[in-house]
Structure formats: C-alpha cells, structure tokens
Amino acid sequence: MTHVLSIEGAGKVFPQGRGGSVTALAQTSLDVRENEFLSIVGPSGCGKSTLLRLMAGLERPSAGSINFRGQAVTRPSGRIGLVFQDYSLLPWRSILHNIELGLEFQNLAARQRRQRAVEHLDLVGLAQFKDAYPHQLSGGMRQRAAIARALAVEPDVLLMDEPFGALDAHTRLLMQRELLALWEKRRKTVVFVTHSIDEAVYLSDRVVVMEKDPGRVIEVLDVPLPRPRTRKDPDFGRLTESILELLKY
C-alpha cells in the first residue's frame, strides 16, 4: 500500500500570551493511502482542522514532519488542494472566473483555462451558473463551485475542512452523494474533516477518531461497508455506535 501523505509525529503548539502555550495537536502519526476516502471526526477543539492545515502546508508543525510522496510539506502548493467550509470564493469574480483562478496561478493559456474551467463546471452541475457571482448562489452551489475550483488544478490530494458544515440537512445529504459520485469518477485521495459521525461513516474507507485536551488521535477505524451505502444497513448503525462510544457519548 502506498502512502500519499505521511504524518510522522507531527504536533502543533500555539504560543499564547505571557509565555504560555496551547497544544492544538499532540504528536500524531498517520498515513493517508493512495485513492482512499479518509475522514477525521472529533469534537470541536480536537485539532482536526489543525491536522488538515498541517497537511495543506498552511501551518508548520512544532514537532515531527508531514511528508507528501516522500517530500516534506513546508508550504502550500497546488498539489494538495483544500476546500473550506464557506465563503472562500472571491466575491468579485464570477463562478467561471473563480474556477479559473488556480489555473491562472499555473500560468495556463487563456483558452486552456477556459476549457478546463467549463469542464469542471459541468462536472459539478453548475454550467448554467457560470456567469453568476458567489453572493447570488445558495450555500450548496457555492460549495460545489469551491470543489470544482479545487479539482480544476488537478491536485493529488483533496483536503476538505467541514465542507458541508454550513449547509442545511437536506442539501448536506445531496452533497454527500454528489461528492461520492465525483470521487468514484475521479478516484482521488480525499481527507475529509467533519464533526458528523454519520457523514464520516457514510463517505469513508477509514475514519480517524480524535479527542480533545490535548487534541490527539485515539483510533483509526476501517469502514468495511459495501458501496453504494445505505444508512439502513445494521452494520452502518453498529459502526456509528462504536465511534460514539469511543467519544464517550
């Protein structure tokens, strides 16, 4: 089994006034496998977002290292994409031009840019909204555009930080199904942070369970359920239960 990302004893300590400090993430080791769908669940403050930001290169670890295909991750690059919870589209750009943004950073010629952007708009079903601006779209459509934007630069890994956290329950279920369809079509490595255990079990091959004070990984579970999954499956319920138990609910 090859690993795309290896987290080797990485931890994050934030300094806090008067020489104190807060441990956001205790030293953690974790491997992300090629093409898997990995979720990270845990309560607020368990360091799951910090772990994701370390993988993206947006934070440097205070200890240990993050390796991407054998090379240390020291800063963000187009190779590891990240989708935020909301409002990450540039509000002054139309949806089409938002999706072209990353391609501009790659200095792609205008025609190829347009072609690739349109292709990804189609992929997420937003073709007819290409000229709309972010404030004119619903939360679900904005997230679809954000996903298309991240995929357009063709990263090796797609990190997602509670991407459906700001959506209503109905839209959320729809988006989960769409994301899975996308993932099956594109076969990309996905690391998905959520605080919904149900969402994690529904989507993932493996679930990383985290605890807080200090933020740390307490368990990594396989989800052996066949796809397409249904929440009626008794194993689905059992797995959800066992994660709840791990988190002491």
Partner: peptide, 18 residues
C-alpha cells in the same frame, strides 16, 4: 482582507505576487 480568501488561493498554488 479575510484570511480564508488568501489561504484558499495559496492552496491553489498562488505566489506572493499572485
């Protein structure tokens, strides 16, 4: 300027000048 706008551009491969 909201941090998420800067960070989401950085992970798309933006340079400082970008």
């Amino acid at each position: 300027v909201r941090r998420v706008l800067v960070e989401s551009s950085l992970v798309l491969g933006a340079s400082r000048l970008d």
